[in-house]
Simulated scan of single mutants.
Amino acid sequence: MRRRRAIILGAGGAIGAVAFMLGVGAYRTRNRPALSEVLPLPIGEMSWALTDHRGQSVRPTDWARRPVMVFFGFTWCPDVCPTTLSDISLWLEELGADADRLIVALISVDPERDTPDVLADYVSNFDPRIIGLTGPADKVAQAAADFRVTYRRVDKDGGDYTMDHTAGVLLFHPDGRFASIIDFHEDRRFAVPKIRRTLS
């Protein structure tokens, strides 16, 4: 297994609270974004198109009428991403058969290195219900914009680089509405009930 050299600085762990505060502030300050510009779009209003780790095209319409769990990350991440995907695997196990109703996806913010084959190898280390998604840089940027997450490349010495990105797990109801976010390292006593509420 190749050495994971990238270092991630997870951004926006408290995105839910920040989104709420920014949205409320928009009513008071014209220079602040409206709440609709901070929270993720409903799945049905998104316009991204990506490729999964099996080489199949995936669009938001493919997720219609299914609860969705999405995490943005990359395979060279040595800490936050594998920890989060391990947590997700444990949450799915605890949900039992209900977990089969979920769409669970890792969207790569590093399309230069994360090809479908690389993602296939990576997600095979976690729950088999987790799919990996990637695509050209502009398609990944569109997905990030739709989900209202941020990421950026950080160059390192020697020509290497890492990726900074939003680290929360985003949850959506079956009708596509944004439900909530699970913060990095959130206790499963709170994470799993959030997911259960999303299923209805």
Rank of each mutant, 00 (worst) to 15 (best):
G132E: 06
T115K: 13
L90A: 15
A120W: 04
D114F: 09
F74Q: 00
R148C: 12
R153H: 13
A141N: 11
C81T: 08
R101F: 03
I130G: 01
T84H: 08
I88D: 05
L90H: 09
L95H: 01
D127Q: 02
L133K: 02
M69K: 03
D155P: 00
D138A: 13
D121T: 09
D114A: 05
V118N: 12
D79S: 07
P116N: 14
A99K: 07
A105Q: 10
E93F: 05
I131C: 13
D110H: 10
I130Q: 02
D100F: 04
D117T: 12
C81V: 07
Y122T: 04
L85N: 08
D155V: 12
F126E: 11
D114T: 06
E94L: 14
D138L: 08
T134F: 00
R153K: 15
T83L: 09
P128A: 01
E112V: 10
G135H: 07
T83M: 13
T75I: 06
R129K: 13
V118A: 11
D146V: 05
V70A: 13
G73M: 12
L90I: 10
D117P: 04
L85K: 10
I107Q: 08
A144D: 01
L102E: 05
V154K: 15
D138P: 00
L85P: 03
T75D: 01
D114M: 06
A105W: 02
A141H: 07
W76G: 15
V109H: 00
A120H: 13
E94Q: 15
L119M: 09
L106W: 10
T84N: 07
T84M: 14
F72P: 08
D114G: 11
V123W: 00
A145L: 15
C81F: 01
A145D: 13
S108P: 06
F71R: 10
T134W: 00
F74I: 01
V123T: 09
V104P: 05
V109K: 00
K139M: 05
A105G: 06
F147N: 06
V70K: 10
F74D: 02
E112K: 12
T115F: 12
R113M: 05
S108W: 04
I88L: 15
V118D: 09
L92G: 03
V109F: 01
V149N: 02
A97K: 08
V154L: 15
V80W: 13
R153I: 10
L95M: 13
I88N: 08
E93T: 14
A143M: 09
A120L: 04
C77K: 04
D138W: 05
V154N: 11
A143F: 07
T84L: 14
P111V: 05
L90S: 11
T83D: 08
F147I: 13
D87W: 06
F74K: 04
V70I: 15
D117A: 15
L106S: 01
F126W: 06
V149A: 06
F147H: 06
L133M: 11
L106F: 02
R101C: 04
E94C: 05
Y151A: 04
A105L: 11
V109Y: 01
R152N: 11
G96S: 09
V149M: 03
L133Y: 08
E93V: 03
A97L: 07
